[in-house]
Design a protein around this nucleic acid. Structure first.
Length: 501
RNA sequence: UCCCCGAUAGCUCAAUCGGUAGAGCGAGCGGCUGUUAACCGCUAGGUUGUAGGUUCGAGUCCUACUCGGGGAGCCA
C-alpha cells in the first residue's frame, strides 16, 4: 500500500507512489489514454491511465468513472506543466468507494434557481469552493484583527425581547407563548459590555425580515460589531479604516490565485490604503444633485448602449456564420456565442432601463431622506477608495445615535461604502451617552421606555462617550471577490421565499 | 407593497407572420496516443408552469393565478 496523502502535498512526493482519497471531478478519454481529474478537498489532480499499461477491464472501469464517484486512487507522482496544479498521478490502481450516478451539476452552465436548489452539491464546484475558502479567511482575518487589538468577544443573544430599532423588519418567534424576535443586531448588548471591557465585539448571525429581493439582501447574514468605550466618532472611523485595510491585506495575501480565478481585478484591492475618503451627508447630497452624478450615469448609458449595438451586430453576424458554416462544430460554437451575447444584451438592457430612474432618484434626492442603493453606487463609483459618509439627519437614523452637539439636526454616524459601486458594507456611529437626550430620542421614536430600562442604566452609571459599527460579512465578501450577487457568499443562503436546502 | 422581464427534454437554451416542438450538455453505446468545458458518430429522452379564453389551428395572441429573475422602498 502506498502512502496516503492529499493533493496539496503532492509536491512533497514527486517520484513516489501515493494514494489519494477523493471524488471524480471530470473525466476524458481518447481510446488509449484516459484522464481522471480527482478532487479531494485540497485541490484538483489529473490522474493519467494509459491503456497499454493496464488490463482491459481496468482501463474499461477507468474510462467509465462517472462524475462525483468517490474513489481511492494510487499512482506515481510526476511534475507536469500540462496538469492542473502542476502535478499529476501516473495511475497504478484505483478502488471505487461509491459510484455516483447522474450527478445533477454538469460541466455546462446552469441557472441560479437550479443551482440554489442544489446548494448541498454546488459546494463541490470550483468557483463555490474558492469563494467559501475566501470566506473562511475573511472571517479569520476579522477575528484576528479584534483579538490582536485587545477586543474581548461578547456573544450577544439571538432571542430578543424587544425590537432593536422598530418591529417591522424582525422575525417573530413564539417563546413559551411570548412573542420574541430574532436579533437584528447585538449592538445594544455589546454597548453594555464595552463599559466593562473597554473594547469588545460580537460576531454572529443576524436576521432581517425585510421583503427585499435584490442582489444585496439576505434574511440571515453574519455581522461583526465592535464597540469601544471612551471613543468619539473619529476614533471609531479610524478603527473601521484600519480594520478594512487589515482584512483586505489578509485576503489578498492568501488568495491571489483564487481571486484571479474568480475574475477579480486585483488592482482596486491593492489600492486600498489609508486614508479613505470622508464626506458628510450634505456633501454627498451635493454630489448627487451636481453634474458629476449625472455625467457618470449618462456616460454609463452611452457606453452600455454602444455595447448593446455591438452585441446586436455580433449576434447577426454569428447567426449568419451559424447558417453558412460547413463544419458542425463551427455551427455549435456560433450557437454558444449567440447565447452568451444574448445573455449579456439582456442584462445590459435591464441596466439601461434602470439608469434613467437612477438619474432621477439622484437629481430629485430630498434632503432628509436616507441614501438609496443607487445613490450609494454613484457616490462609491466617483471615488477610488472606500468612502465614509457621515452626519446624517437624525430622523432617518436610529434613536441611539449621538446627536451632533454643533448641529443638533445631525447625528454622529457613518456608513462606509465599498469602492467600485459595491455600496454599504459598514454602518456605525457614536452612541448617545447623555441620559436625557437618549430618553428624548426614545420618546420621539414612539418606543416604550420599559424594555429599554437596562439600556438607560448604561447612561445612569458611569456613562462615557462610546461607539462602534457593524460590518456585513457577505457584502464584504461579495466586494472582495467581485461577485454580482451576495447569495454565493454564504454556505446556505436564506432569502425571501428560499429556505431549501 | 410597487414596476419590468421570464417559465419549452434531467440541465442550458432555440423555434421567423399563429401552421409537423429542435440543438448542446448530461445518460447509454461505439471510435480516437496527452486531453484541459477534449473531439467525432449513433441511441433514448416532451401533458411547452397551472386554469380558462380567441382561432380551422396556440410554445407563440388574451385574462387570471403560481413560481423565479432584476429593480424601487428598506437595509449590512
Amino acid at each position: 500500500m502506498s502512502t496516503k496523502t492529499t493533493i496539496d502535498r503532492l509536491c512533497e512526493h514527486v517520484g513516489q507512489s501515493v494514494t489519494l482519497q477523493g471524488w471524480v471531478h471530470k473525466t476524458r478519454s481518447s481510446g488509449k489514454i484516459a484522464f481522471v481529474i480527482v478532487r479531494d478537498g485540497t485541490g484538483l489532480c489529473q490522474c493519467v491511465i494509459e491503456k497499454n499499461e493496464h488490463t482491459e477491464p481496468f482501463f474499461e472501469t477507468a474510462t467509465h468513472l462517472s462524475q462525483e464517484t468517490a474513489l481511492e486512487i494510487a499512482g506515481t507522482v510526476r511534475a507536469d506543466e500540462r496538469a492542473v496544479g502542476g502535478h499529476e498521478l501516473d495511475t497504478i490502481g484505483l478502488a471505487v468507494i461509491h459510484a455516483a450516478q447522474d450527478y445533477p451539476i454538469t460541466p455546462k452552465p446552469h441557472g441560479i434557481d437550479f443551482l440554489l436548489k442544489q446548494r448541498h452539491l454546488w459546494f463541490r464546484s470550483e468557483r463555490q469552493y474558492r469563494i467559501l475558502r475566501i470566506r473562511h479567511t475573511l472571517v479569520n482575518a476579522i477575528r484576528s484583527f479584534f483579538n490582536d487589538n485587545g477586543y474581548i468577544l461578547i456573544d450577544t443573544p439571538i432571542f430578543s425581547p424587544s425590537a432593536g430599532e422598530g418591529t417591522s423588519t424582525l422575525f417573530a418567534v413564539d417563546y413559551f407563548g411570548e412573542p420574541v424576535y430574532l436579533a437584528q443586531t447585538g449592538q445594544l448588548y455589546v454597548e453594555a459590555a464595552c463599559l466593562a471591557h473597554r473594547k469588545v465585539y460580537c460576531f454572529g448571525p443576524t436576521f432581517r425580515a425585510e421583503k427585499s429581493k435584490t442582489r444585496r439582501h439576505l434574511t440571515e447574514f453574519w455581522m461583526v460589531e465592535p464597540e469601544i468605550a471612551y471613543a468619539y466618532l473619529d476614533d471609531v472611523i479610524g478603527v473601521a479604516e484600519d480594520f478594512i485595510c487589515s482584512v483586505v491585506q489578509r485576503v489578498l495575501s492568501q488568495h491571489r490565485a483564487d481571486l484571479v480565478e474568480l475574475g477579480r481585478d486585483l488592482a482596486p484591492l491593492e489600492a486600498i490604503r489609508k486614508p479613505f475618503c470622508r464626506l458628510t451627508y450634505d456633501e454627498a447630497v451635493e454630489i448627487l444633485h451636481g453634474p458629476k452624478a449625472r455625467e457618470l450615469l449618462e456616460a454609463d448609458l452611452t457606453q452600455k448602449n454602444a455595447r448593446i449595438a455591438e452585441l446586436i451586430a455580433q449576434i447577426e453576424q454569428l447567426t449568419e456564420t451559424q447558417r453558412t458554416a460547413k463544419k458542425k462544430w463551427q455551427q455549435e460554437k456560433a450557437a454558444q456565442d449567440i447565447q452568451a451575447a444574448r445573455e449579456e444584451r439582456a442584462e445590459l438592457e435591464e441596466q439601461v432601463a434602470n439608469i434613467p430612474h437612477h438619474i432621477e432618484l439622484a437629481a430629485n434626492f430630498q434632503w432628509g431622506s436616507d441614501l438609496g442603493g443607487s445613490d450609494e453606487t454613484i457616490i462609491s463609483r466617483l471615488h477610488d477608495r472606500p468612502v465614509f459618509v457621515t452626519h446624517y439627519p437624525k430622523e432617518v437614523k436610529a434613536f441611539y445615535m449621538r446627536i451632533d452637539r454643533t448641529n443638533p439636526k445631525r447625528v454622529e454616524n457613518f456608513d462606509m461604502l465599498a469602492p467600485e459601486g459595491f455600496g454599504e458594507v459598514i454602518g456605525g456611529s457614536a452612541r448617545e451617552e447623555d441620559y436625557d437626550r437618549l430618553l428624548e430620542r426614545i420618546r420621539e421614536d414612539g418606543l416604550p421606555q420599559e424594555p429599554y430600562e437596562w439600556y438607560l442604566d448604561l447612561r445612569r452609571y458611569g456613562s462615557v462617550p462610546h461607539g462602534g459599527f457593524g460590518l456585513g460579512v457577505e457584502r464584504t465578501l461579495a466586494w472582495l471577490c467581485s461577485l454580482k450577487h451576495i447569495r454565493e457568499t454564504i454556505p446556505y443562503p436564506r432569502m425571501m421565499g428560499k429556505i431549501y436546502p
